[in-house]
Write a protein that binds this DNA or RNA. Structure first.
Lengths: 169, 169
DNA sequence: CGAGTGATTGTATAACATAACGCAATCCGG
DNA sequence: CCGGATTGCGTTATGTTATACAATCACTCG
C-alpha cells in the first residue's frame, strides 16, 4: 500500500526524487550566506568541491572529487581536495561517511551538524536524517558510565525503497 | 595463585578495570563454543588474531595486528590478517570501528552483534554498549521512508571517565 | 581415489590520507 | 599604501588502509 506521508518537497532529505538544479542552487546560496555571516573564506577550490558533491548527490571518495576538481583546472594533488573537504566538513557543509570513507554534501546546511545517514548498499545513495532522538538514547547510557560524548557517528546500511522494489531480495 | 577473581570482571563492558587474563580466557572459550556449535572453522590464524585483539583490549589497525601475527610465524601479508578479521567480524567475534578504521575484540560474544561504541579520543580506549534503544529510534524513521536497515554503525566519540578526571578539559 | 570446498599464502596494486615545504593571496594595523 | 601576519594553495613525497587475483594445500564426501 501507499506510504502514509506525502511530505514536503523542499525539505526532502530522503530517497525521493527532487528538483536537482534547484537543490544545488539552494544549498550553495545557503552556504554562501553562512560563510559571509561567519567570516569564513569560501574560496574557489572550496566552492568547486562543494559544487561537485552537490551535483553528484551521493557519497564520493576524495579521489573521485579530486579527479573532477583537477579537470576544472585546480590542483590535482590529494592535499588540495582533503583541505577543502576538511573545511566543508568542519563547518557542517558536507559530511564524511565513515562507513564508506567518502564524502557527501550536506542536504540541509545549518539544520543539524551531525545527522544520521542511511546508506543503500545497492545504489550507494545516502540519505540524511535527523539523529537527535537516537543520540539522546545513547547519551543517557553514556552519562551513566561517565563518558562525555562530543560527537556521534550514526550510519545505517541497508536497501533504499527504490532498490528494494527493483530487486526484492 | 592469583587466579581467583571477583566476578565483576566478566560482565564489565565499560571503562572500568578488570581481570584481563580472565576476560581473555572467557572470550576465547565462548568463541570456541560458538564455532563448534555453528560448524565454523576456528583456524590457527583466526585464533591468533582474536587472541591478539583480546590481549590488546583496544582498537588496533589491521597492520598492527599483522605485525604481531607475523612475529608469531604466520603469514606477513595484508590479506592474511584481513581475511581473519573478516571472519571474526562477520560472525560477531570482533568489531570494526569505522571511525578509526580499526578492529577490536567483541567484549561479549553472542550478546549483541552490532553494539554501539564509545571511543575515547584521549586514550583511544573503546567501550562497547548495547545499541538496541538507539537503533529502534532510527528504525522508526527508516521505516517511514521505506528504507530497510540491515546494519547500523553507532560510534560515539568523546572522553572517557578516566581521562576526563586526569585532564578536565 | 578423485572431485569439490574452503582456507592459506603471496604478489601486486588500488584506495585513502597526511607531512612538510614554499609561494601567493588576503587581511589588517599603521 | 605598506609591511607583517595569517591563511590557503600547489607540489613532492610518503604513509596507511584495503582488495584483486591466482596458485597451493587440506580436508571431506561420494
Amino acid at each position: 500500500m501507499m506510504a502514509s506521508t506525502p511530505n514536503q518537497s523542499s525539505l526532502q532529505r530522503g530517497f525521493a526524487k527532487h528538483d536537482h538544479a534547484d537543490c544545488i542552487v539552494a544549498a550553495m546560496s545557503a552556504v554562501e550566506t553562512q560563510c559571509a555571516d561567519g567570516g569564513l573564506r569560501f574560496t574557489p577550490v572550496r566552492r568547486a568541491v562543494l559544487e561537485i558533491l552537490l551535483r553528484e548527490h551521493r557519497a564520493m571518495g576524495a579521489y573521485a572529487v579530486l579527479e573532477d576538481l583537477s579537470a576544472q583546472g585546480f590542483g590535482s594533488q590529494p592535499p588540495v581536495v582533503y583541505r577543502a573537504l576538511d573545511f566543508l566538513v568542519s563547518h557542517g557543509f558536507a559530511h564524511k561517511i565513515e562507513r564508506l570513507n567518502a564524502f557527501i554534501a550536506c542536504a540541509a546546511p545549518g539544520h543539524d551538524d551531525t545527522p544520521a545517514f542511511m546508506i543503500c548498499r545497492v545504489c550507494d545513495t545516502v540519505a540524511e536524517t535527523p539523529s537527535a532522538p537516537a543520540r539522546e538514547e545513547l547519551g543517557r547510557v553514556a552519562e551513566a558510565s561517565g563518558f562525555v560524548i562530543e560527537r556521534t557517528v550514526i550510519e545505517a546500511e541497508g536497501v533504499c525503497p527504490g532498490c528494494a522494489e527493483a530487486a526484492p531480495e
